[in-house]
């Protein structure tokens, strides 16, 4: 199984542990992730106005660089931007001509654009993954937190059921964890509002964490560095037991018995979120 890999900027910075653990797991699973030779930031948010072509240059350049090979990313935001940019290139001929002419590349929307979770589910298969689990996460009560970018808009992302997704729970089950289903697992964490409107993000995060805690979770997994940052840094002090937040790949590597340690979304070695 051979894929081109787009890391994105956060995975070389604050979210290095997501990359390290995912790469280790991929190698052990025989999934070859070949990093693109030259890449630049995807832009982090997909431009929602169709004349914002300048913001498409970077993702389209990345898509073209994959040269038709399946393109994998780990960060939800990168995957979201790449997948939607690809959909626009398929759908809007005018935008495609303008962007590819400017970049002087040939690209017309070809190639699979995948999140690493999809590779595990669809290409490898969770059945196959089960065989590779050496240290199952027995007794660990873990809830999945999906957030927005993997799921919506579902017509484009085609990742999972947008309201009742199962892919992360299925992964957790495979890893041997005790799966906890939290009702707020697809609600937004506040995204970039933590930069300008921290109070708003605190409200959304409080709901997500309370809901997970009520459901009995001791830890959450996510595939998005910003979600993790918000969940760890925007929650209010409430005197309750803090909840751990992991990248999905960290628990994957752990269950596979691979070395690696969890770091906070800010790169610090704090194991437990400050609550």
């Amino acid at each position: 199984m051979r894929y081109r890999y787009f890391p994105g900027c956060t995975l070389k910075g604050q979210a290095k542990s997501m990359e390290d653990t995912a790469m280790a797991a991929a190698a052990a699973l025989g999934i070859e992730l070949i990093e693109l030779d030259e890449w630049q930031c995807c832009g982090a948010v997909y431009p929602l106005y169709e004349d914002e072509l300048i913001s498409l240059l970077s993702p389209v350049r990345t898509l073209a660089a994959a040269a038709g090979e399946p393109l994998v990313s780990l960060c939800s935001a990168c995957h979201h931007v790449l997948k939607r940019a690809q959909e626009l290139m398929q759908r809007n001929q005018d935008a495609r001509h303008k962007v590819t002419d400017f970049l002087e590349v040939e690209y017309s929307g070809e190639g699979r654009v995948l999140h690493f979770l999809e590779v595990l589910r669809d290409d490898l298969g969770f059945d196959k993954l089960t065989e590779m689990i050496k240290k199952p996460l027995e007794g660990r009560k873990v809830a999945a937190y999906y957030g927005c970018l993997l799921l919506r808009p579902s017509k484009v992302m085609q990742f999972d059921d947008p309201e009742n997704p199962t892919i992360m729970e299925d992964l957790l089950k495979t890893l041997g964890a005790e799966v906890v289903k939290s009702p707020y697992r697809t609600e937004c964490c506040g995204a970039y509002l933590s930069v300008t409107e921290e109070g708003v993000a605190s409200d959304t995060v409080a709901r997500i964490i309370d809901s997970a805690r009520q459901a009995g979770a001791e830890a959450l997994i996510t595939a998005c560095p910003l979600c993790r940052y918000n969940l760890e840094n925007c929650s209010r002090e409430d005197g309750k037991e803090p909840i751990k937040v992991y990248y999905f790949s960290e628990l994957l590597a752990e269950a596979m018995g691979l070395p690696g340690e969890s770091t906070g979304a800010d790169g610090s070695k704090e194991e437990v979120a400050q609550r």
């Binding site: 900027c9 979210a15 832009g43 982090a44 948010v45 970039y192 933590s194 930069v195 979304a265 800010d266």
Partner: peptide
């Protein structure tokens, strides 16, 4: 919102993704 609005603590802790999306949106 601009770079000047960021506190040193934010600059240190915020993931790159948050900074890029914040600048893109604001």
């Amino acid at each position: 919102f601009g770079p000047a609005d960021l506190t040193p603590e934010q600059l240190e802790k915020l993931p790159q993704q948050a900074l890029v999306s914040g600048f893109r949106k604001y």
